[in-house]
Amino acid sequence: MTFLPEASGFAPRIDGLFYAMLGLSALVVVAVFTTMLVFAIRFRRGRNVDRSGESHRDLGIELTWTLIPFALFVGIFVWSIRLWIDMRTPPGDATTIHVVGKQWMWEFEHPDGQREIDTLHLATGQPVRLVMISQDVIHDVSIPAFRVKQDVLPGRYTQMWFTPTRPGTYDLFCAEYCGTDHSRMGGVAVVQTPPEHARWLASHAGGSLAEQGRALFTRYGCAGCHDAGSSVHAPRLDGLYGSTVPLADGRQVLADERYLHDAITLPGSEVAAGYAPVMPSYKDRIDEADILALVAYLKVRGTDRETPHASR
């Protein structure tokens, strides 16, 4: 790439595959074009050359140029798929940053509550997992310098991960057409060295996401039903995250981020066994950013990380 830097752990690997395929393609193009040119000159009309003999039925030749491309394709496929599986499998130590897309801006929320709009601060060497959701139509986070891209869907979390490797400021685009200002929906990813990044985080510290969620939990009245001592028969939420929830219809689901999100927006869809489906949907009453905070809070509720300062 002429002016696009390789700024993530994936970039050199993806470019390696890209250039390998480019080389192979160039080879094929040159070979076929040369052959065509040689035939075109040698057998042009009016030239006295030997044109005798039928050559149009040769099974051997046909099979050769069927099977060799096939084998090459399978090779490329395997190469690409190994890389692709890595790209889809975030490591355990990745920092989770939440992303909310809406027409036409991006909101990023760091684990300790720093929020930013259209700018994403990252540290070199630190794997990052973006957990993304849209508030309206389909968007897409694309950071070409990292060679990553992932659609951001309404109503469902999608994720991608990468490790920035080179300090600098890189374009961040919305790559899925989303309406009028699609081409203005974007910003930059700012990659800093770890000490710089730590300073940036410290200077922008607010309450952590989970703390904000705890406040929202009271503000939206969730506590009224879900706190111990409430008169309503509602599921207790302490230590819910990561557990297996038996449902009223006999299925069992893992209480992951998706489950917690859907339990707020679509409470009727997966009702916990033993409870009446009385909770109203909060779909249009809580925006996605607040839901993220609530989910962050529910993830730590009832654990030793719940109290704000224990985690510091």
């Binding site: 679509l266 489906p277 009385v278």
Partner: peptide, 9 residues
């Protein structure tokens, strides 16, 4: 005019 938790679905 359906109501209830499953009305949307």
């Amino acid at each position: 005019e359906e109501v209830g938790g499953l009305a949307a679905q």
